[in-house]
Design a protein around this nucleic acid. Sequence first.
DNA 1: GTGAAGAACGGCT
DNA 2: AGCCGTTCTTCAC
Length: 182
Amino acid sequence: MAERTAAMSWLTVDTPLPSGPLHVAVTAQGVAAVGYLGREGELPRCADPSKIAAVTGRVGEYLAGRRRQLDLPIDWSLSAGPHRAVLQTLLREVPFGRTITYGELAVRSGVFGEVEEPGLAARTVGQMMAANPVALLVPCHRVVAADGIGGFGGGRVGIDVKRWLLTLEGVMEPTLDWNGPL
DNA sequence: GTGAAGAACGGCT
DNA sequence: AGCCGTTCTTCAC
């Protein structure tokens, strides 16, 4: 899993998300990984006050509904090739409050050739989202299925997080488990 | 008309 | 090599 973790350190951000605190791995370049479930147990804890302040501050504002984009520098070193291309396409093409389907993201990224059957590349895109190292920064939660919300990593808790974020952005109607900023 | 099940394909861990 | 955050088609009520 974590091969190049030399210059990487992690910190946690307390969030109102159903999944609890967010785990963020940072490097000199920026944010390299974000996990709803902790998986950076082997990394040293981040001791840089400015990074901690920037990450916790912006994430906090975003999740409180006071910020529409995080504007945090992203270290793409954990993703490469088509994976990175799709993530960057998503980041650039889908703004706050908008959603896109797996199939359409596949087409717009251009990674899968000119045009393919919607069903072919869509699944691959889903796999890429599942493997997205920088969740939240790259709005993988805005990628939905053709006729539903689609899936999300981490099983059921993951779906809750996705719905929570989509509700925050005004895409979904508030649900009973909504405990965000109202 | 609505609901459920199956096959196909490409890339990540 | 195995595992999917899908989709579309088709069969069954």
